[in-house]
Design a protein around this nucleic acid. Structure first.
Length: 594
RNA sequence: GGUCCCGUAGCUCAGUUGGAUAGAGCAACAGCCUUCUAAGCUGUGGGUCAUUGGUUCGAAUCCAAUCGGGAUCACCA
């Protein structure tokens, strides 16, 4: 690419002119800003110490050298020590002709493709998915797509937290109260049903705590002594003992929850290569703890609980196994890490998990390190920020959550209403219309979430997120649809043919659009390296915006000169390909009409 | 209190391997549809880049301190 060429030639220029070989990273070549003339800009300040001349003089010397070295440079100008290089139109036309048809344009040439295992979603089986899970799923899915497109081998895995006291709470509530609720439970989605009983447990449990406190118990005592929590603990113990009745209830509730999850995943377009269950991996974890105990990495307290001391590593002591032998969260995660290594022997293990678990992952990594697991050095916690509501945090205990299914449904109806009121679905069959509403609503939701830097907390405003104007998914979809419409209209006309464009001149809009397309591979590479779909999302918005200006300024069908029209059509089609590819990497589908 | 993350326009966000006069969208106001789909385009107003100091040719970007917000420091997962 020309960008690299300019850097190499600049190094040569400094060597030839001033006798110093500079490192590549000191050469800063960037895209020329819109308000100046040129395609690429070289910052000359770093070279002044070698030239011992004024910025403008130095820039002129380097510019003159580069013009000879790189014939594609048409001319250059210098403003305040910035050397703006202007390329010949022929270069951009050549770029269009060679890459415009190239299906793999944008796929970075990776020197060492590696294998990734990406874990995301990780739902609990005691409640339905909410907005936080949506961010998790979308990030995991998109990062996987981007890595795979970059040439890496990617395995997507889910880890279901289907074991633990929280599950027992739902189960207990179900045992106690489901027969009274048969009417209202009818037809309810399985995950919502489990969630309903979990909330029921929490409410009753809180009542018992209040009662005990009124009888003079302290808060902590009350929480310990409430009959319900002890029944739940007993259930957990029975579960770990593989009690048949308990296991069968557990299985029954899980099945119905998974069915519910599948519906939500289907709507969101989320999929996995493999699903791990904590109920299976925790046993592996227990074995690892036992082995670690034998080899002295872990130690036992008088009550028989097992611990690791990480104080010398800047962390704390951490419990690995309770006194009664039951396992905790980290026990299971150790098992999962080992099992995952056995299954994949991957080079990198990504865990898409919220930033409230940063500390947990520090600990996990340290323990794996001490156990000399090959996973330790290659574990990467893709930590993302919380999703907040305009009036504060989401709190599941207070019922202040945005349910995933409700949100998806609401988005769908907004898309429908909006599209119908704009009169956009004339000639659509009902199926086509519904497919469109789905693409638009999911496009809006996914883009809204993915455009934000993963590590930042974000505010989810339900009213704004369903807006389809401005910096939104549908805005980008609309730019694509406009191109598709032109393509349909020019099919089998003179305009759709290819000509020798090399003698044509390009105007500002045409060149701008091509230049932006040119930077697509760079964006992909950055997004893959930084694991940030947001970079790609914002780029695609810029590209759509640039296209909309181009669309306005550069008519195709009305253009009298056929070659010019054909050139513009080629650029548009190239742009459409990037938009579609890029959005696919975000998990967003493009409609052909809207 | 310890550790980590964040602070950019009224609101939601870009921009952070140091580069030119800090950008979008929403909201407000004013234009553009007999002309490829107006879910679009053009324009106006709106900024102490939290504060202070440092590093240097140059700082929203790097460093330090301070102030605000969040997370975490569970025998919950």
């Amino acid at each position: 690419m020309i960008h690299q060429h300019i850097i190499k030639s600049t190094i040569k220029a400094i060597d030839t002119l001033y006798g110093v070989v500079v490192e590549e990273k000191t050469v800063s070549v960037q895209k020329t800003r819109k308000e100046f003339t040129g395609d690429f800009t070289l910052v000359v300040f770093p070279f002044l110490k070698y030239s011992k001349k004024q910025p403008d003089t130095t820039a002129k010397e380097i510019g003159t050298f580069l013009s000879v070295e790189i014939p594609l440079i048409e001319r250059f100008n210098i403003i305040n020590g910035f050397l703006n290089l202007e390329l010949k139109d022929a270069y951009w036309i050549q770029f269009l002709m060679t890459e415009g048809q190239n299906q793999s344009f944008g796929t970075p040439i990776i020197k060492n493709p590696i294998t990734y295992v990406v874990e995301y979603s990780s739902p609990n089986t005691n409640k339905p998915l909410h907005l936080g899970h949506i961010r998790n799923n979308l990030l995991g899915q998109s990062v996987s797509e981007i890595l795979a497109f970059s040439g890496h081998k990617v395995f997507r895995v889910n880890l279901v937290n289907d074991r633990g006291i929280h599950i027992c709470k739902s189960m207990l509530a179900w045992q106690k109260w489901s027969h009274e609720n048969q009417e209202s439970d009818k037809g309810m989605k399985g995950d919502h049903l489990a969630g309903k009983y979990y909330v029921m447990f929490e409410n009753e449990y809180r009542k018992q705590i209040e009662d005990l406190k009124n009888k003079g118990k302290s808060e902590d005592q009350a929480k310990e002594e409430a009959p319900l929590i002890n029944e739940a603990r007993e259930l957990l113990r029975l579960w770990e003992d593989k009690d048949i009745a308990t296991r069968s209830l557990w299985q029954k509730m899980n099945d119905m929850v998974f069915k519910g999850f599948d519906v939500t995943y289907e709507k969101l377009g989320i999929s996995f290569d493999k699903t791990y269950y904590e109920s299976e991996t925790y046993l592996e974890g227990k074995k690892i703890v036992e082995n670690g105990l034998k080899s002295g990495i872990f130690y036992q307290k008088p009550d028989n609980s097992v611990w690791i001391d990480l104080t010398t590593d800047g962390l704390d002591e951490k419990l690995l196994l309770r006194a009664d032998g039951t396992s905790v969260y980290i026990t299971q995660d150790l098992g999962t890490a080992f099992q995952r290594y056995d299954d994949y022997k991957a080079d990198k293990y990504l865990y898409v998990v919220g930033n409230e678990q940063n500390y947990h992952f520090d600990i996990l990594k340290q323990i794996l390190l001490k156990l000399k697991s090959p996973v330790a050095g290659n574990l990467f916690h893709l930590s993302y920020g919380m999703v907040e509501l305009p009036d504060g945090k989401m709190k599941s205990r207070e019922g202040k959550v945005v349910d995933a299914d409700d949100l998806i449904e609401e988005m769908f109806f907004t898309a429908k209403k909006q599209t119908e009121s704009l009169g956009k679905i004339e000639g659509f069959s009902e199926n086509e219309a519904n497919a469109l509403f789905h693409k638009l609503s999911m496009g809006a939701l996914k883009y809204f979430i993915l455009k934000v830097d993963p590590k930042k907390n974000m505010v989810f405003n339900p009213e704004e997120s369903i807006d389809f104007n401005g910096n939104t998914g549908p805005f980008i979809q609309y730019a694509y649809v406009r191109i598709m419409s032109i393509v349909r209209k020019t099919e089998n006309t003179e305009i759709s043919k290819s000509y020798d464009f090399s003698k044509l001149n390009m105007n500002h809009n045409e060149k701008s659009l091509l230049k932006l397309i040119y930077s697509f591979p760079e964006i992909i590479q950055d997004a893959a390296e930084t694991l940030s779909p947001a970079l790609l999302a914002n780029y695609l918005y810029d590209l759509a915006k640039e296209f909309n200006q181009y669309y306005h300024e550069c008519p195709i069908i009305k253009e009298a000169q056929v070659e010019k029209a054909a050139l513009r059509l080629h650029i548009s089609v190239f742009c459409a390909g990037i938009l579609k590819k890029g959005m696919a990497l975000l998990g967003i589908e493009m409609p052909d009409k809207m």
